[in-house]
Design a protein around this nucleic acid. Structure first.
Length: 819
DNA sequence: CATTCCCGCCACCGG
DNA sequence: CCGGTGGCGGGAATG
């Protein structure tokens, strides 16, 4: 397998002047000598020597532009023949994909690879992978397989058995792995590091190097131990150990770290740049080696491609003032904080004291969830001890104990039916997603099944409730995980009220109500929301039907419209154009009076039907808003039914933001008086995948915030309650974002984010908002803006304090776009 | 030109 | 010592 094929596939990139003829002559020779045996592409059905076939080849090989150009030219000349040729050509192109580079992309290869194995292989089965075989079958050099396998290994989707041999585990371990990774990520203070980096670049890089370095050093200093090694899963390690010794392989570790970054940062978007810097910085901080950086980026692309194939992330672009940067968005399953028993990990940025951390991380009961990590040891010795105990504890041959934990995946295949469903629900299911993907990339199945806090509601398979233990937090939010459809159903109670509800009483359960539309809220929203735009892109896999989506955006008839099943999704172009117009028109229709949610936050509820997911694939296209039936009810006050389409419009956030104090602080949320971490966490997880995602995000944020703003008076009206926002969520919206969101963002408050760095901007501030706002973002700089803010920052010592700062108002908005 | 990232050389390591 | 691994970076394809 020498490099022969390479020659074959590669042809003159551009043969502009070349007539079909000249090109042909050139190509022919090349084609002939093809030596690579089984290459599909080489197998040309028709006789290669025919002019037509050559032409076909040529064209197919040519880049689109050339192709079209050529076609045009040809048309003018001998249209007849050419036309035919063209036709054939097209057929060809479809049948046999063009030998473009994309065909050989790691991502595609990975897809092929993954297609060979089930996501959830039965435990008993021997799922062995022979690298040689695979390489051969997939017709690629082995080297490439290593790339794939290495990142799969980093996720424990495979493990090495021996030379050339791997065992396939599929996604059984995924959730655990992710948990572990998240944990480690938190321990490593990745969040801070990210902030650090962003902050830095923020301030024009080296302007204040001295200061920066100090901070940098400090932040990194705490995690000196950074030479993080491979994170293992308890059950897995020795298996691999038999043959696999070095676990610190860079690609593997890099992959893990990369994933950690996603899990730890709140808008689950990580730009390559930041990732690269962090991954480099860990080892040698301040080694601004350019080539090194470049290499790192290359590697990250490799990893990202595989992760993308796994549908854990997807490529997006974050547009800032400085143009758009490549980034990736986490689309994988939301990672639950931890085992049930443990208290929910704090919000990503707020790192609890070590003791606390250790407690949280290592609840005495949940043994299997720990990762053995050196860095941890360094950090907390006590933890280490705990860990040992835990780890040393006997582990059943089966990877994980299927006990009460959420390891449905571990369930024996017997329960096949149930488990299957459960799994899907639990973890973002990829397979189905893949299939569905074709239709609409947008819909990413949400891992968790919706569950209600009330025991009664729990599905049979019920995993541990997402709810945090009552004892744990003063505020008891009821959190419902997201549904695949993207409808989130979390209910947050007013702190005061929630407070009383330690156990989730049925009374709080949401019940579906007839759909009624709520209007006016949207208008409100428009004022407060941040502006973010997401361009929808699609990857190769996704085929989007532009036509469909458009209609949805139209504002549904207000008030009486019942089931407005509008598809909010629309083509990018349309989106862009329309948005603006839309926004304007929409704005007019403000109806402030419609402030319904007196006391708790309303969160869209979906019926907890397991079946939901199943359907998603179909619907996505039709309207991502298959949510139409979703009803939202306010736990406390009346129920306000809202149709899905309205969902976006309805957002709570609007008035909630109105409150004078806006605390934006991803990092310091913990500092908030009464705060339920669990709540926050769960809220964070919402990703912009869903149609209403952006709105949801927003909502969630607020929700999360609410708990933080504990001070909320009993008075249902939230008006002056301090609200802390998790800006991250807000800043970015999914591709499905609809007009309202857009306009919203424009009109009022802008929360932008540069890659997760939160920036709060208030372009046009409503009077009510004029007052000083509280922003909790440590590194807010004071550009001299009119707005002053106090920022709450977390100090290294673990204490949070509030410092004065100025609200930073960026001129640019953050845009996340897919490409 | 910039972004992506394929390709495969070759060091390294385990057997 | 051999063959599997996989770091690494040139530079091609693509945007």
């Amino acid at each position: 397998l020498e490099g022969k094929k390479r020659k074959i596939t590669s042809r003159p990139p551009r043969a502009p002047a070349a007539t079909s003829h000249s090109v042909l002559t050139e190509i022919q020779p090349d084609c002939q000598p093809l030596t690579t045996p089984p290459k599909p592409k080489e197998i040309l059905p028709a006789d290669p020597w025919t002019p037509t076939s050559n032409l076909k080849m040529l064209i197919s090989a040519a880049s689109p532009e050339i192709r079209s150009r050529e076609q045009r030219r040809e048309l003018s000349n001998n249209s007849r023949e050419v036309l035919q040729a063209k036709h054939c050509l097209q057929v060809y192109e479809y049948e046999k994909s063009q030998p473009s580079r994309k065909e050989k992309s790691l991502g595609l290869l990975c897809h092929k690879f993954l297609a060979r194995y089930p996501d959830y292989p039965s435990t008993a089965e021997n799922n062995y992978i022979c690298l040689d075989e695979v390489a051969e079958e997939l017709n690629v050099e082995r080297r490439r397989i290593y790339d794939i396998v290495n990142v799969l290994e980093s996720l424990h989707m495979v493990s090495r058995l021996a030379k050339n041999r791997y065992a396939w585990h599929g996604r059984h371990n995924l959730s655990k792995t992710l948990q572990a990774l998240k944990k480690v990520g938190e321990e490593n203070k990745y969040t801070q590091q990210i902030q650090m980096i962003k902050k830095r670049e923020y301030e024009h890089e080296f302007d204040f190097d001295g200061e920066r370095n100090e901070e940098m050093a400090r932040s990194f200093g705490s995690n000196e131990h950074s030479e993080m090694s491979f994170v293992e899963l308890p059950g897995m390690e020795f298996r691999a150990a038999s043959v696999n010794s070095r676990k610190d392989k860079s690609l593997r570790v890099m992959s893990q770290k990369f994933v950690m970054l996603f899990l730890v940062s709140t808008p689950q978007i990580v730009s390559l740049e930041v990732a690269a810097k962090i991954l480099i910085g860990e080892d040698q901080l301040e080694d601004l080696d350019k080539s090194k950086f470049k290499t790192k980026i290359r590697r990250l692309y490799d990893i990202a491609n595989v992760l993308s194939s796994l549908e854990l992330i997807k490529k997006v672009h974050v547009t800032e003032e400085r143009g758009r940067k490549p980034a990736f968005k986490w689309t994988g399953p939301d990672v639950l904080p931890n085992v049930q028993g443990s208290c929910p990990p704090p919000i990503s940025e707020s790192i609890p004291s070590k003791e606390q951390c250790s407690k949280n991380l290592f609840p005495s009961r949940g043994k299997q969830n720990f990762t053995r990590h050196p860095s941890l040891i360094k950090l907390v010795k006590t933890i280490e001890n705990d860990r040992r105990k835990i780890q040393s504890a006997p582990t059943s041959p089966v990877k994980m104990s299927a006990s009460t934990d959420q390891n449905l995946s571990a369930l024996p295949s017997k329960m096949a039916q149930v488990p299957a469903i459960a799994k899907h629900q639990l973890e973002g299911q990829s397979k189905s997603a893949l299939e569905s993907n074709q239709l609409s990339p947008e819909v990413v199945p949400k891992p968790e099944t919706p569950r209600v806090a009330a025991p009664s509601q729990q599905p049979a398979l019920a995993q541990p409730p997402a709810v945090c233990p009552p004892s744990h937090s003063s505020v008891s939010p009821v959190i419902l995980p997201h549904t695949p459809a993207g409808v989130s159903y979390a209910i947050y109670l007013h702190p005061s009220q929630a407070h009383t509800v330690t156990t989730y009483s049925p009374s709080f359960m949401l019940q579906p109500l007839p759909c009624a539309n709520v209007t006016g809220i949207k208008s409100i929203n428009s004022k407060v929301l941040n502006k973010t735009t997401t361009e929808e892109g699609d990857n190769q896999l996704t085929t989007d039907d532009p036509t469909k989506s458009l209609t949805a955006k139209e504002r549904p008839p207000i008030k009486s419209e019942t089931s407005s099943q509008r598809c909010l999704k629309r083509s990018q172009a349309l989106q862009e154009n329309n948005l603006i117009k839309k926004c304007r028109s929409d704005e007019e229709s403000l109806d402030p009076s419609l402030t319904f949610f007196p006391s708790g936050y309303l969160i869209p509820l979906t019926q907890c039907t397991h079946g939901n997911k199943a359907g998603f694939s179909n619907k996505e296209k039709a309207g991502i808003c298959s949510l139409q039936h979703t009803t939202y009810s306010s736990p406390i006050a009346g129920v306000i039914p809202v149709t899905a389409s309205e969902l976006k419009a309805v957002n709570i956030p609007a008035f909630q933001i109105t409150p004078l104090n806006i605390m934006l602080s991803p990092t310091s949320i913990a500092a908030a008086p009464v705060l339920s971490n669990s709540c926050l966490n769960s809220s964070n997880t919402s990703s912009a995948q869903n149609p209403s995602s952006s709105v949801l995000n927003f909502t969630l944020q607020h929700i999360g915030l609410i708990p933080a703003g504990v001070q909320v008076p009993a008075n249902p009206v939230l008006q002056h309650m301090p609200v802390s926002l998790q800006s991250e969520n807000v800043s970015y919206s999914s591709e499905n974002m609809n007009l309202q969101e857009e306009k919203v963002s424009k009109n009022i408050l802008q929360l932008s984010d540069r890659d997760g760095t939160i920036i709060l901007s208030v372009p046009s501030v409503p009077k009510e908002l004029q007052e000083p706002q509280t922003v909790t973002e440590n590194f807010f700089r004071t550009p001299g803006g009119p707005n002053t803010v106090s920022s709450l920052s977390a100090n290294s010592d673990g204490t949070d304090r509030i410092s004065q700062g100025t609200l930073y108002i960026p001129q640019r908005k953050l845009e996340v776009s897919e490409d």
